[in-house]
């Protein structure tokens, strides 16, 4: 589904190029659950951002399906971004001014989903994540684990084919982390492609493929 060919990402500094990613070749098939591991600064987050179309400042080739991203128009790219990807962050990044319900609703609004359909999608998600009672609370009133659940619900509300998660359990204790991973596993079983970056080896066990990164390069790529 996704193919990266010879992808570089670098920062021009005054005297030299500093490579953040160098020579990445990666093929991701639909339905995979991939874990990116590696020390800080290895380029995991950068790779995720590029995969998620949040960062377009790179060299090399990125194809989604059978089309190269470079050949797409701005509008097509943002359409792709809207319809195919969901994002989950380490710091949850919920919008503070919005309630749980409204946070989950936001991506649907931007996809122009009709009101009745929105309601049923959100009702299903709240039910699934056991948040019905909390729907009118603001993020600050929730625990970290609960906030991340809202983050996941928000990410999957638009039914993306690819879910990108950057350290989704980094701020959580192990109990909560396990719960999040189980949800990922479930989503994976339902057919969602998941790419997560993490420091925790145990999280990789939930996935199907483990990619180790070091200094902007893929060091090891193995199936689990």
């Amino acid at each position: 589904m996704i193919q990266l060919k010879n992808l570089d990402k670098f920062i021009e500094s005054r005297f030299q190029r500093v490579f953040i990613l160098k020579g990445i070749n990666l093929t991701i098939n639909e339905g995979e659950f991939i874990t990116l591991m590696g020390p800080s600064g290895a380029g995991k987050s950068t790779l995720l951002n590029i995969l998620g179309l949040l960062d377009e400042d790179y060299e090399g080739e990125y194809s989604f399906g059978d089309r190269s991203l470079k050949s797409m128009k701005e509008r097509e790219r943002s359409g792709l971004h809207k319809s195919e990807f969901g994002y989950i962050f380490q710091a949850y990044h919920l919008i503070d001014e919005l309630t749980v319900y409204e946070n989950i609703e936001t991506p649907l609004l931007y996809r122009n989903v009709p009101s009745s359909e929105r309601k049923s999608i959100i009702a299903n998600l709240m039910d699934r994540f056991n948040m019905v009672a909390k729907k009118d609370l603001f993020p600050a009133q929730l625990s970290g684990g609960q906030q991340q659940l809202v983050g996941i619900a928000r990410a999957v509300a638009g039914r993306p084919r690819v879910l990108l998660a950057d350290e989704p359990t980094g701020n959580l204790h192990s109990g909560q982390a396990k719960e999040i991973m189980e949800i990922f596993q479930e989503l994976h079983r339902e057919g969602t492609t998941i790419i997560q970056a993490t420091h925790a080896r145990e999280n990789a066990d939930f996935g199907t493929r483990l990619i180790n990164m070091l200094d902007g390069k893929i060091e090891r790529d193995e199936a689990i």
Binding site: S78, I95, E97, T106, R111, R154, G158
Partner: peptide
């Protein structure tokens, strides 16, 4: 910043 960034990531267009 944060709010704007998030909304963009969630698919908000400039006009929206």
């Amino acid at each position: 910043n944060k709010e704007v960034g998030l909304r963009k990531i969630m698919g908000a267009g400039r006009m929206q």
